[in-house]
């Protein structure tokens, strides 16, 4: 090993410290909310600054209120419905699109690729998209959150890049043996593409878990709200009357800050539990995307 000069050692120390500080900045907002969510509600409404530890007596009372609240529970279930069905639909269509555009001997491949890739540069925009959903009669239905926005050209392109990198020999041999394209896709391409499929499903899943905007413009019926929209009402708009009514009467105003922290936590906990395990797929996806953008 090459011996390090004292200047290099000083740099290494400085570099480590500054990366530690950066990690602290990445974590602290979430930590603050987590500590707030188990704080004493009386102390919380008067507290200022950052919470490194819970304010006052630790309590899980806020979580009890939040988990008993029917609108939060309902929107939680709705989000699961939207995430699972939109991700499944989007991923299947994405696989078909990627398979079709990755066939090297396809005569009309060019126009198909162009049709898909062009949507990365130019789109109809907000109002025409809204009019489409309106004309389909999907306003105030679950379809409006599941079907539009289920497939993105970028994800098709990264999956296609990955499919195209699979050696031709495999599928050619199967083709000569009389296998159909459907069979080649399901028993040759898909088994060796598990990680890219995981990446794309993950991109879609995260996107749908965190989405709120389409729900805000397409839905009026509160029974269909996804979690992020309920979260927005409670935390940002302060229109959480339903929670006030559900809890035990007069003292409930004091619970507001606590309920805000708890609702935020409830919405990010699943993501925080999942992300350390899926982040390596994520990295793979970004790298494939960078090869052919």
């Amino acid at each position: 090993m090459i011996k390090r000069t004292s200047g290099q050692k000083a740099f290494a120390v400085f570099n480590t410290l500054h990366l530690l500080l950066l990690s602290f900045i990445f974590i602290i907002p979430i930590w603050h909310v987590a500590m707030g969510s188990i704080s004493d509600p009386m102390k919380l409404s008067a507290a200022t600054g950052l919470f490194f530890v819970p304010a006052g007596q630790t309590t899980l009372g806020g979580y009890r209120l939040v988990l008993q609240n029917p609108s939060i529970v309902r929107s939680y279930l709705n989000t699961f419905i939207y995430v699972i069905s939109a991700t499944a639909f989007g991923t299947v269509l994405n696989i078909l699109a990627a398979y079709v555009t990755s066939r090297k001997d396809l005569r009309y491949k060019g126009p198909l690729v162009l049709m898909i890739a062009f949507t990365m540069i130019f789109r109809g925009g907000l109002i025409p998209g809204y009019m489409l959903v309106k004309n389909l009669g999907w306003l105030d239905t679950r379809w409006s959150l599941i079907i539009p926005g289920a497939v993105y050209a970028y994800n098709v392109i990264i999956m296609r890049t990955s499919f195209a990198a699979i050696p031709d020999g495999l599928s050619e041999a199967a083709f000569i043996d009389g296998a159909s394209h459907f069979r080649i896709l399901t028993s040759i391409i898909l088994p060796v593409s598990k990680s890219i499929i995981a990446v794309v499903a993950l991109f879609y899943g995260i996107q749908h878990w965190n989405a709120w905007f389409n729900a805000a413009i397409y839905l009026k019926n509160r029974n269909l709200y996804p979690l992020q929209l309920t979260l927005r009402e409670i935390v940002l708009l302060g229109t959480e009357q339903s929670i006030v009514a559900d809890a035990d009467g007069q003292d409930v105003m004091i619970y507001r800050p606590l309920i805000k922290y708890c609702t935020i936590m409830v919405s990010i906990i699943p993501m925080m539990l999942v992300y350390p395990f899926v982040q390596k797929y994520f990295v793979t996806g970004v790298m494939i995307g960078s090869i052919k953008g």
Binding site: L96, V100, M115, F122, R123, G125, P128, L132, F182
Partner: peptide
């Protein structure tokens, strides 16, 4: 045949809104 649902999807959800412009 596999391309049909893809083309239909992109046509309806991307190209019709473009026409809406």
């Amino acid at each position: 045949v596999m391309a049909i649902p893809v083309v239909v999807y992109f046509f309806i959800f991307y190209y019709i809104p473009m026409g809406g412009i």
